[in-house]
Design a protein around this nucleic acid. Structure first.
Length: 565
DNA sequence: CCCTTAGTAAACAAGA
DNA sequence: GTCTTGTTTACTAAGG
């Protein structure tokens, strides 16, 4: 028998622990937090598309007007023509920013040619040369501002085709709010300008005076437009590459999915079926826009690690991570694993769950709801590519967790020691459930980023997860609805185990109560073992004694039914 | 700021 | 002696 453990022994271990384990040199990068999930590109479809439509109409109207003017025009520099061209630019810039491709009505080259024909200003190449050092150098000096500039490239042209301030609504608003895309940190952000302006009024004056409609400004604008286009092309390429990578990582090697057929996970996809370009500037609305488990579509895990910006809690792929919210409220482990087991198996991505959750899941997933330590190890390595490395680290953590948490009960049986889960203890250690208050739940949902997800988007997410996961149908239609709310409950609430089981790849289904079993105090594990107690005996009695439908039980366990509205 | 939880590292003991 | 298993402590970090 084991001597009383060394709790009494005085530890002389230096607290600073100079001896760094040779195995601890993982590329943790030190508690990487995942980037802020600020990019909430929620599906505001209608306004954008409406704008798009309006822009197209304006574009065509302007083009017609322009062509009429150009046909009988002798004065290339006339204001009307310039005005028309500016209208086109005004229209095109936002369009090109919105979607990589300009509307078919008029492509940039058309525009440039038109401009060239009509106004007699230098060609785009010349304009480039002319504006060189203005725009691009500015970009280089302010590398992160490319897109804001790009987005705002058309704005100055709002003003004054005729050289006068036209004070559009937006400007008035901007004046009120004191913000202007071309004004920041007390200086003009017009490419190559950087003139100091004390306040917005001064800036507006400066804008109207120095950046009024003239050849130079329009050339700069055109250059900016090209910069934007180049960036968009580059972004499209990178997005495509990312898509391919994610697709590759998520798929079984034997089932490669064509990259050019990305899963329509975009909430707008249904509205954009006419859009020939799948990889858009904003192709991945989930990146950082919601705390959903990494992978409603497998790849989003990557977005969590490298890109995945799960609220603010953790980085998946690398390093020691601290997780609280994600585990307790956002990421039901079983459903997550059920849906993305293939991904986790193949991708070196750290699962966004605590060790305790994973251990528990492993144990509950086993036929007898008990595993030896080694079997737990095997489960980890089998299920997660991530745990095929740094074995010393995570195995130590597993052991540590097993010993530390009362919810893990060591039971001796004929085979030796096995670990089981004391569900009561497990639930005890969890924070108070969100019971009773639907508003609390809603607040939590919105706090987690779901506020921006409308029903259709969530449905789309569910659909996408269904379609993307080419592995066996991981989410049954019955379970699909739960997808929308599964982040409300605990991370790994027992209900989710059933989802795991439902895919057939895992152990038989048991209700959470069935998982529960008599508490076996760690101090006297051997007492529990009955004379004829086979490993199963620990649970057998309970397993067969609970007629309660698991679904109901789930709702009680995870989300009180009154919260399911 | 304090507390809790989690992850990591390490020391140590017992047993095979 | 080595390895595995199990316990414990300490430290750090994040989040409430």
């Amino acid at each position: 028998m084991m001597v009383e453990s060394a709790s009494e022994t005085i530890r002389t271990t230096p607290s600073n622990q100079n001896g760094v384990s040779s195995l601890s040199s993982q590329s943790d990068g030190g508690g990487g937090r995942e980037g802020g999930s600020n990019g909430d590109t929620n599906g505001e479809i209608s306004p954008v598309d409406l704008l798009h439509l309006q822009q197209q109409q304006a574009l065509q109207a302007a083009r017609q007007f322009l062509l009429q003017q150009a046909s009988g025009l002798n004065s290339p520099g006339s204001n009307e023509v310039k005005q028309s061209v500016l209208i086109i630019y005004n229209v095109c810039a936002p369009l090109s920013f919105k979607s990589v491709s300009l509307p078919a009505a008029m492509c940039p080259s058309d525009l440039q040619q038109l401009w060239k024909d009509v106004s007699g200003v230098p060609s785009s190449e010349e304009a480039l040369k002319q504006a060189e050092g203005l725009d691009l150098s500015t970009n280089s000096s302010n590398s992160t501002s490319a897109f804001p500039k790009a987005a705002s490239a058309h704005l100055p042209l709002h003003s004054l085709p005729n050289g006068q301030s036209h004070t559009p609504k937006r400007d008035s608003h901007e004046e009120h709010t004191g913000s202007h895309p071309l004004y920041g940190h007390g200086e003009c952000k017009w490419p190559g300008c950087e003139a100091l302006c004390e306040d917005m009024g001064q800036f507006i004056k400066h804008l109207n005076n120095e950046h009024a409609l003239d050849d130079r400004s329009t050339a700069q604008c055109r250059v900016q437009m090209q910069v934007v286009q180049q960036l968009e092309i580059q972004l499209a390429k990178e997005s495509e590459r990312l898509q391919a990578m994610m697709t590759h990582l998520h798929m079984r090697p034997s089932e490669p999915k064509p990259f050019n057929q990305p899963v329509s996970t975009h909430p707008k996809s249904s509205d954009m079926t006419s859009d020939p370009k799948p990889n858009r500037v904003f192709p991945t609305p989930h990146f950082g826009c919601h705390p959903i488990t990494p992978l409603r579509q497998g790849p989003s895990v990557i977005s969590s690690s490298s890109l995945h910006t799960h609220s603010h809690s953790h980085t998946h792929a690398v390093g020691p991570i601290r997780r609280r919210n994600s585990d307790k409220y956002c990421t039901p482990i079983a459903s997550e694993l059920a849906q993305n087991c293939e991904f986790y198996k193949n991708a070196d991505v750290r699962p966004p769950f605590t060790y305790a959750s994973l251990i528990r899941h492993a144990i509950l997933e086993s036929p007898d709801r008990q595993l030896t330590l080694n079997e737990i190890y095997n489960w980890f390595t089998r299920k997660f590519a991530y745990f095929r490395r740094n074995t010393a680290t995570w195995k130590n953590a597993v052991r540590h967790n097993l010993s530390l948490h009362k919810c893990f009960v060591r039971v001796e049986n004929v085979k030796g020691a096995v670990w089981t889960v004391d569900e009561v203890e497990y639930q005890k250690r969890r924070p108070p459930k969100m019971t009773g208050s639907p508003t609390l739940v809603k607040n939590m949902i919105s706090g987690l980023g779901f506020g921006s997800l409308n029903a259709s988007y969530q449905a789309a997410l569910a659909e996408s997860s269904l379609s993307l996961l080419n592995s066996p149908p991981l989410v049954t239609p019955q379970s699909a609805p739960s997808l929308n709310m599964l982040h409300v409950g605990h991370d790994d609430v027992s209900s989710t185990v059933e989802q795991v089981n439902s895919n057939g790849s895992c152990s038989p289904t048991l209700s959470p109560q069935q998982y529960s079993h008599p508490v076996h105090v760690k101090e006297e594990p051997t007492e529990v073992v009955e004379e004829d107690s086979r490993p199963v005996s620990l649970l057998a009695g309970v397993t067969h004694s609970l007629p309660l439908p698991s679904d109901e039980r789930d709702l009680e366990e995870d989300l009180p039914t009154e919260e399911l509205e």
